[in-house]
Amino acid sequence: MTTVDLPTTEGAHHDEAPSHPATSTGLTNEKVAMWAFLGSECLLFGGLISTYLLYKGQSEPGTIRPHDIFDIPYTSVSSFVLLMSSLTMVLALSAIQKGNHRALRVWLLTTALLGGSFVAGQCYEFTVFVREGLNLRTNLFGSSFYIMTGFHGAHVTIGVLMLLSLWSLSVKGRLPSEKAEVVELIGLYWHFVDIVWIVIFTLVYLIP
């Protein structure tokens, strides 16, 4: 992506450049990079979900199968929690765009708490499954299930850490409205982990 030299007035301060350079596409490089990253993440999760779908029915007979242990009502509540965190995230972005920093901090913290609840729920679910005899080495279903949902959980955890960092920056007054795009970029990442879970919840948990 090429940057464009805009004409400057003689004597103008060069360090007063706009926060985002004018580019040949008119799009900020950070946002283009984030969407390219999310496109590549589709491939990562596509590979993990494909592996799960192809392996889940190939476990040895007599070992634990998916619908022997899944607790659908419990996972439905987790899914609902993550889905609602997308709402609070988009409200956080809306708040900073309007210059309402108090609301920004409330919504960022709410999103982080909802994300943390989801991760805690996933840890509890894993504990229950291990107690029931399903671990990484039990069968192909166990291996592919833990790898796929574990990668997703790691993504949510990274998202929670980024949200808490944003909240911390905002508390210190280092997140002015001009930097709303930072919130937007982390929001894109957050919504992405939500849509990955939408796919996992349906393909892994609900479809037999």
Binding site: W35, E41, L43, G46, S50
Partner: peptide
């Protein structure tokens, strides 16, 4: 921008291609 849509849709199409290939 449509540029973002293209990035994302390309990723999804490649992910589906990955599944079909492995299948």
């Amino acid at each position: 921008s449509k540029v973002f849509r293209r990035f994302f849709v390309t990723g999804i199409i490649l992910a589906m291609f990955c599944y079909v290939s492995v299948l």
